[in-house]
Design a protein around this nucleic acid. Structure first.
Length: 450
RNA sequence: UCCUCGGUAGCUCAAUGGUAGAGCAUUCGGCUGUUAACCGAAGGGUUGUAGGUUCGAAUCCUACCCGAGGAGCCA
């Protein structure tokens, strides 16, 4: 497996492939010990002891310390190097030397330094910064090592999601972002102009996935979702990314089984492929190594009993609040499934539980270590009559759902699906204390820029 | 929307009614192996905004603005 971050000898352009000084990514420099290579990147630190200068350069794949004695460079280049500031852009050439003192195990003995551009007063310093300052400078904050590690883990999680679903024979069918009305009718939607009509930004692709599942059998979508809710916590974004599988003839038990395999695969893959990035995030990976199935399945009734035993003032029939979820998930070291929620606290399309019609064939997955809900899903309603009644009960307009009801008129089958949130899953796996770090440019309550 | 906390140099913070401070960053000088290098020097302020109390306000009071954490809702 040789990607741009692989251990091999990666040359960055055709132009340089046959050159005597090939342009290499820093991550691959260890494969070029004893050779003269070119590195293109940005200066993160410069230190000097008068007759010797040290440059630490990053290029997005890693960082490397470069060293030059006064005789190694021309007087002009020596002087230009002395003028380099944090985040100045450079193209350097030098001899790759093994050096156990360095983080990557190698150091570059400089032979030439070409200044591409000099940065002035880069605002982010190696010292501490406050959240407000960093969020205002998110476009620059992305250059720091920790943020890069977080976003690399994000990319790995997304790749794992897609690879897993494709391997399970699910077809990618993306859902629209503009929708004519509420998918679920409850939460607030962002309204926008669609020529003469009003349109709304999607809050879920699920209803469209139900249609696609009746066409292809097994489908999933992957895209952004928008919730115009004034939620202001470490677990909420206004714009977030979700993967939503949906499949025909699926049951609640199938949902739980697939979620379990998806999470085990994803955590295992991140542990293996992104070990260094997890270390940069200071993640306690021993906790992730315990994420192997089977995860506990807890019926709503039993969950309520557990809360009462713990002395929490929980009223049967309600949805769980944050303290309730924490109490339940803290009892285990793996994610847990809470099933069969009351129909009243779930969306109108949830299939009723045949064993107790007040409950539903629903399932939420709660991540451990207090990270809370990362997946919501369940079996969908297959009866046209019941669906029609539920739409009325929720005060939703029947005409907006006629196309959705067609799915029950023409070959209705039991079917099921779930939605998994990328940012919450990443926050848990990377051990973040806030989802704002889990996406390159977060959209949050009262924060739309940069 | 509600509750709690906060806003002082570019950044992180100190100064609890009596002369506005430190570290880092920046600029200049020194140093041939540094690792957030180190040593010396310099510049840098309408204390979020408006009003009030007081001989005197960063500090006390009122309103507003901005931010953070949490609740509800959710992935």
């Amino acid at each position: 497996m040789l990607g741009p971050f692989g251990p091999g000898r990666t040359v960055m352009s055709e132009e340089h492939a046959a050159a005597t000084h090939p342009w290499v990514r820093i991550r691959a420099a260890a494969g070029h010990v004893g050779e003269v290579v070119e590195i293109r990147g940005w200066v993160t630190h410069r230190r000097s002891s008068g007759k010797v200068q040290f440059l630490v350069i990053r290029d997005g794949s890693g960082s490397i310390q470069c060293v030059a004695g006064v005789k190694d460079l021309s007087p002009e280049q020596w002087e230009a190097t002395a003028q380099l500031t944090t985040e100045s852009a450079v193209i350097v050439r030098g001899l790759v030397k093994a050096d156990t003192r360095q983080v990557g195990g190698v150091e570059l003995g400089l032979q030439s330094v070409e200044v591409v551009s000099v940065a002035h007063d880069y605002p982010i310093t190696p010292k501490e910064h406050g959240v407000d300052f960093l969020m205002d400078h998110r476009h620059l904050w992305l250059r720091s090592a920790r943020q890069q590690s977080v976003l690399r883990i994000r990319a790995e999680i997304i790749a794992a999601f897609r690879d897993f679903m494709n391997r399970e024979d699910f077809l990618l069918v993306d859902a629209p972002v503009f929708t004519p009305s509420a998918c679920e009718g409850t939460t607030n939607l962002f309204e926008t102009q669609y020529f003469e009509d009003k349109a709304y930004l999607t809050q879920s692709g699920q209803l469209y996935m139900e249609a696609a599942a009746m066409a292809f059998g097994r489908v999933y979508c992957f895209g952004p979702a928008f919730r115009a809710e004034k939620s202001k916590t470490r677990r909420h974004l206004i714009e977030f990314w979700m993967m939503e599988p949906e499949w025909a003839f699926g049951t609640l038990q199938d949902v739980i089984a697939l979620e379990e395999r998806l999470l085990c695969y994803t955590v295992g893959r991140v542990l293996e492929a992104r070990a260094e990035d997890l270390k940069v995030c200071e993640r306690d990976t021993s906790k992730l190594e315990k994420v192997v199935g089977p995860f506990p399945r807890i019926h709503y009734d039993d969950a309520v009993r557990m809360l009462h035993e713990a002395g929490l003032p929980f009223e049967y029939g309600n949805d769980f609040g944050a303290p309730d979820e924490t109490e339940l998930s803290n009892r285990y070291e793996t994610p847990i499934f809470v099933t069969n929620y009351p129909a009243a606290v779930k969306a109108f399309y949830m299939e009723p539980d045949p064993a107790n019609p007040k409950l539903s064939l629903s399932c939420d997955c709660l991540a451990p270590e207090g990270y809370g809900e990362i997946i919501g899903g369940g079996q969908r309603m297959s009866s046209l009559d019941l669906l029609t009644a539920r739409i009325d009960e929720h005060g939703l307009p029947q005409e907006a759902f006629e196309w959705y009801k067609d799915l029950r008129r023409y070959g209705s089958v039991p079917h099921a699906g779930f939605g998994i949130g990328v940012e919450r899953t990443l926050a848990w796996i990377a051990g973040l204390d806030h989802v704002r770090e889990s996406i390159a440019f977060p959209r949050m309550l009262y924060r739309l820029a940069p």
